Amino acid sequence: MEGYLHLSNGKKYKGEFATKASETLCGEIVFFTGMTGYQEVLTDPSYKDQIIVFTYPLIGNYGINKEDFESKKPHVKGVIVYEANMQAHHYQSQYSLAEYLEKWNIPLLSHVDTRSIVKNIRQEGSMPAILSTDENVAKEDFLLVKDAKVPKVSEKIHQSYGDGKYHIVLIDFGKKESMLDGLVERGCKVTVVPYNTTFDEVKGLKPHGILLSNGPGDPKELTDVLPAVKLLIQHYPTLGICLGHQLAALALGGDTTKLSFGHRGANHPVFDKRNNKVIMSSQNHSYVVEEESLANTGCEARFFNLHDNSVEGLTHSVYPLQTVQFHPEANPGPSEGQYIFDEFIENVKANSGRVFAYA
């Protein structure tokens, strides 16, 4: 079926829908530069309600399996590729890309000039976009619903995993399953709680450490949770990842800003100042912590993105806090950053039960 991608800057692209497309939809358009990992991207809650453009020209060639989901369902609003392979070739494959998206009523537009789309986004930034069977759309159709996305993807009840010695409470802002797996594999018991769980409720669970998860949207939409986040950081060894990193910075007095088109890919070089080394990382975010805002917060930037020198992670002068903007669980992407989990466990072992103070 003939289909169209309309960008809010007036650009229009013609393609073919590889799935049913019965209605016009609008979402923020972003792009992902990895060659593989499309299944993890589709099911990453951080992509909630976004239209994702895959820059690699052939997507779907190894299908969709039952092992690599990052959540129970896909969260993207639409998918755009140059070519969608309908014949998956992999021993684990259960569905083709089109079959999987069709199941969830997510449109897949193919045979589109993805290079041109990405150039537009890089030049003018992420913007509202429309997927439609109509060749023409009205200007007022480019309307993004400004609602908090974290409540849509966060777990609604407490859930526990593993039975290890150290108890980690994972605050779920839109967690990825591989993040949870990374802790369980390291001998932790993990209790996943909703994003708006109070400090006293977490304290009642008697954790040894806290993980602030990734998630979608603007961290400043979650100002209501910042007092609880600050108390958690002040009382427990804490690891913040992606959105969790941003919320930790905001809770301690820092500030965040939106990038023009974000970082989304599996090959972003990051410099670790403490270890004096460069690692390749998996990333998916639109917002970053402003380094100049960290003065008088006790926070110090430890990791930096080597493409634009943006802050990729923090430590604190008093609290056993560590944060990273990238994804150390590495699904999809390189596993060079997984030592962050090992550092966190050592932090928990060394600081569990201590009382911290910061003036």
Score class of each variant (00 low, 15 high):
Asp308Asn: 15
Asn351Met: 09
Thr297Phe: 05
Asn309Gln: 11
Ser282Asn: 10
Thr323Tyr: 08
Gln325Pro: 08
Pro332His: 01
Glu343Val: 00
Asn284Phe: 01
Leu294Lys: 11
Phe344Asp: 07
Glu291Ile: 07
Glu291Pro: 05
Ile345Val: 14
Ser286Cys: 02
Lys349Ser: 06
Tyr287Cys: 05
Val311Glu: 00
Ser281Thr: 15
Tyr287Gln: 02
Ala330Leu: 06
Ser310Phe: 09
Glu343Trp: 14
Thr315Asn: 15
Ser335Phe: 03
His285Ile: 00
Ala295Glu: 11
Tyr339Ala: 06
Glu336Asp: 15
Asp342Gln: 13
Pro332Val: 02
Gln322Cys: 08
Gln338Thr: 10
Thr315Trp: 10
His316Leu: 15
Arg354Ile: 06
Ile279Tyr: 02
His327Arg: 09
Leu321His: 05
Cys299Gly: 04
Ala350Phe: 07
Ser335Pro: 08
Asn331Ala: 12
Ser310Pro: 07
His316Val: 13
Ile345Lys: 03
Ala350Cys: 07
Val278Thr: 15
Cys299Glu: 02
Gln338Tyr: 03
Val311Asp: 00
Asn351Thr: 10
Val289Lys: 02
Ala295Ser: 11
Asp342Lys: 14
Glu343Pro: 00
Phe341Gly: 08
Gly333Asn: 04
Phe344Thr: 09
Phe344Glu: 13
Arg354Val: 09
Asn351Lys: 08
Gln322Phe: 05
Pro320Met: 13
Ser282Arg: 00
Ser352Arg: 13
Ser335Ile: 12
Gly337His: 14
His285Lys: 05
Val324Met: 11
Met280Pro: 00
Gln325Asn: 05
Phe344His: 13
Ser352Trp: 12
Val348His: 06
Leu314Asp: 14
Ala301Asn: 06
Gly353Cys: 10
Arg354Asp: 12
Phe326His: 01
Val288Ser: 01
Glu343Ser: 05
Pro332Arg: 00
Ser282Pro: 02
Ser286Asp: 12
Arg354Tyr: 10
Asn284His: 03
Glu336Leu: 10
His327Asn: 08
Glu346Ala: 13
Val311Gly: 02
Lys349Leu: 09
Ser282Ala: 13
